[in-house]
Simulated scan of single mutants.
Amino acid sequence: MSAPKPGPVELALDEMFSPKIADVLRERGRTVIAVVERVDLRAVTDDDLYAWAAAERCWLLTENVKDFRPIMLRTLQAGGAAAGLLFASSRTFPRSRQNPGPLIEAIHAWLAKGPPAPPLIEDWLFPVQQ
Score class of each variant (00 low, 15 high):
55 A>Q: 13
56 E>K: 14
56 E>Q: 15
57 R>H: 11
57 R>K: 09
57 R>N: 13
58 C>K: 05
58 C>D: 09
59 W>C: 06
59 W>L: 03
60 L>H: 02
61 L>K: 01
61 L>W: 02
61 L>G: 00
61 L>P: 00
62 T>Y: 02
63 E>P: 00
63 E>W: 01
64 N>Q: 07
65 V>G: 00
65 V>P: 00
65 V>R: 14
66 K>H: 10
66 K>N: 08
66 K>Q: 09
68 F>M: 07
68 F>C: 03
68 F>W: 02
69 R>E: 12
71 I>G: 01
71 I>P: 01
72 M>R: 15
73 L>V: 06
74 R>I: 02
74 R>Y: 07
75 T>L: 10
75 T>A: 14
76 L>S: 12
76 L>M: 13
77 Q>T: 09
77 Q>Y: 10
77 Q>G: 14
78 A>I: 06
78 A>T: 04
81 A>S: 11
83 A>V: 01
83 A>R: 03
84 G>V: 02
85 L>V: 04
87 F>K: 06
87 F>V: 08
88 A>K: 05
90 S>F: 11
91 R>Y: 07
91 R>P: 00
92 T>G: 03
92 T>N: 03
93 F>M: 12
95 R>L: 15
96 S>C: 05
96 S>R: 09
96 S>W: 00
97 R>D: 10
97 R>T: 11
98 Q>L: 15
99 N>F: 10
99 N>M: 11
100 P>D: 02
101 G>F: 05
101 G>S: 11
105 E>F: 06
106 A>M: 08
107 I>F: 06
109 A>F: 01
111 L>A: 08
111 L>V: 07
111 L>I: 12
112 A>N: 06
112 A>Q: 13
112 A>S: 13
112 A>M: 07
112 A>G: 08
112 A>E: 13
112 A>T: 14
114 G>K: 09
114 G>Q: 11
114 G>N: 09
115 P>F: 13
116 P>Q: 10
116 P>L: 08
117 A>S: 11
119 P>Y: 11
120 L>D: 08
120 L>A: 15
121 I>Y: 04
121 I>G: 01
122 E>H: 04
122 E>W: 03
122 E>M: 12
122 E>K: 05
123 D>N: 07
123 D>F: 01
124 W>R: 03
125 L>D: 04
125 L>K: 02
125 L>R: 02
125 L>T: 04
126 F>E: 15
126 F>R: 14
128 V>R: 15
129 Q>D: 13
129 Q>W: 05
